[in-house]
Simulated scan of single mutants.
Amino acid sequence: MALLEFFRPKKQASASLAKERLQIIVAERRSAGSPGPSYLPQLKQDILEVIRKYVDIAPEQVSVALEQRDDDLSVLELNVTLPDDK
């Protein structure tokens, strides 16, 4: 059985897959020389949809910001206000 598992692709966790996709988006935007993060609204919506699978939250409870510190350094800040567990 172990031989068959060697040839099957392994499933990635959703968090690592999301991280890879985000890295690709950021790298693509940097290489295109885009000065502004025009993808942030869609990124916020995608993140909100994923969080809503687990917790009922409003769009106002999620904030996404991209900070350019240097030419080669960008910081993506994500703040989510989770409701109290009742």
Rank of each mutant, 00 (worst) to 15 (best):
residue 1 M to H: 13
residue 1 M to F: 13
residue 2 A to D: 15
residue 2 A to Y: 12
residue 3 L to R: 01
residue 3 L to M: 10
residue 4 L to N: 04
residue 5 E to G: 14
residue 5 E to K: 07
residue 6 F to H: 08
residue 6 F to S: 13
residue 7 F to I: 14
residue 7 F to G: 09
residue 8 R to A: 12
residue 8 R to V: 14
residue 9 P to C: 03
residue 9 P to I: 03
residue 9 P to W: 00
residue 10 K to S: 06
residue 11 K to Y: 03
residue 12 Q to E: 09
residue 13 A to C: 09
residue 13 A to K: 02
residue 17 L to H: 01
residue 17 L to S: 03
residue 17 L to C: 05
residue 19 K to A: 10
residue 19 K to H: 06
residue 21 R to F: 14
residue 21 R to Y: 06
residue 22 L to Q: 05
residue 22 L to K: 00
residue 23 Q to D: 14
residue 24 I to S: 15
residue 24 I to K: 09
residue 24 I to C: 09
residue 26 V to L: 05
residue 27 A to L: 07
residue 28 E to V: 11
residue 29 R to Q: 10
residue 29 R to A: 11
residue 29 R to Y: 06
residue 29 R to S: 11
residue 30 R to C: 15
residue 30 R to H: 12
residue 32 A to G: 06
residue 32 A to P: 06
residue 34 S to P: 06
residue 35 P to F: 07
residue 36 G to C: 11
residue 36 G to T: 15
residue 37 P to H: 03
residue 41 P to Y: 01
residue 42 Q to Y: 10
residue 44 K to E: 12
residue 45 Q to V: 07
residue 45 Q to W: 01
residue 45 Q to N: 13
residue 46 D to M: 04
residue 47 I to T: 13
residue 47 I to D: 02
residue 48 L to W: 00
residue 48 L to S: 03
residue 48 L to I: 10
residue 49 E to C: 14
residue 51 I to E: 06
residue 52 R to W: 04
residue 53 K to G: 13
residue 54 Y to T: 08
residue 55 V to E: 05
residue 56 D to F: 05
residue 56 D to T: 08
residue 58 A to V: 14
residue 60 E to S: 15
residue 61 Q to Y: 00
residue 64 V to Y: 00
residue 64 V to L: 04
residue 64 V to N: 01
residue 64 V to G: 05
residue 65 A to Q: 03
residue 66 L to D: 08
residue 66 L to C: 12
residue 67 E to P: 03
residue 67 E to G: 08
residue 68 Q to H: 10
residue 70 D to G: 10
residue 71 D to M: 04
residue 72 D to G: 14
residue 73 L to W: 00
residue 73 L to T: 08
residue 74 S to G: 10
residue 74 S to C: 11
residue 75 V to A: 04
residue 75 V to W: 00
residue 76 L to F: 02
residue 78 L to Q: 05
residue 78 L to F: 00
residue 78 L to I: 09
residue 78 L to H: 01
residue 79 N to L: 03
residue 79 N to K: 02
residue 81 T to F: 05
residue 82 L to F: 00
residue 83 P to W: 04
residue 84 D to N: 05
residue 85 D to N: 08
residue 86 K to M: 15
residue 86 K to D: 15
